[in-house]
Amino acid sequence: MKKRGKGVGSMWYGIGNTGLPNPAAAFIEVLSDTSVNLMVGCADIGQGSTTVMAQIAAEELGLSYENIHVISADTMVTPEGGASSASRQTFISGNATKLAARQAKATLTEVAAGFLNVPGEELIFRNGEIFSSNDNSKKMTYRELMAEMKKHGRLAVGAGAYNPKTTYLHPETMAGIPYEVYSYATTIAEVEVDTETGEIEVLKVVSAHDVGLSVNDTMVEGQIEGGVVMGEGFAVFEKIECSNGVIKNPIFSKYLIPTAMDVPDIYSVVVECEGECGPYGAKGVGEPALIPSIPAIAAAVEDAIGVRFCCLPITPTDVLRELGKLKTQ
């Protein structure tokens, strides 16, 4: 018989290292033709940080995404970025990028204010233009601004560094500020359990993530979808078999990760939440994407067959054993 069940799982996740300093930095230069070099230590391992940094720099400078060239993770060229871990790069390297862009922009603002004869605070940089928020006849293009910069011998360069506001935790009670900000998420999973074979099929997964600000929806969804499927592996497939210190299944034919056949229908919900500490409020999603799907799938299996499991992964053998259907022990 096939039995269906649903389950809920939630999580919180502190962004950055726990109760420790973990800074990152960025360098930026706007060139005379308005193209930009951005140098960040942050390693893009496929999660898309290079794209995120370019979007943040473009927004802050008022230039287009295409203008920004990112050089990343080359220790002779880029400043310290720390690890691409702890869901920290959008928040920390993102803040560093924003600060670097802001420093370059301060010089640009000074020169533009002089040229347009308006106070710098009034100026808005957007889509390749600089204009006064009070009088939009007072405007110039970025190219004009860069020509003006050249005339005055000014360079649009900036460096930014950001270290999240945390404290060391008390050695005995762990009191303190472990993280500056947290991401939150809730996942609801629906599964179908075959009580004859013990097989668990994850049918549908809804995963809602508070990311602060979504810098790039497609990439946030990509993280969520990848996390949900990895969570499925955690909950119902994967286990390193180790005997006398030897890993028995170090290869794909023996350590099964989810394939295209195993993927549930995934409904990502991106939740935004205003805040000051992240770059424009952005937090992190890399690890949160994985976490809540694990308890949600486990709970859905429990709901389907009324059995509580205390070990992950829940394999077909485990299901059959709990249902009293294992012929041999």
């Binding site: 969804e221 979808e225 499927v229 295209a260 995934i266």
Partner: peptide, 14 residues
């Protein structure tokens, strides 16, 4: 199904 991906969860590939 013969091509493994560990990042995307396959959904955007579909």
């Amino acid at each position: 199904s013969g091509n493994l991906c560990r990042c995307t969860g396959y959904t955007k590939i579909f």
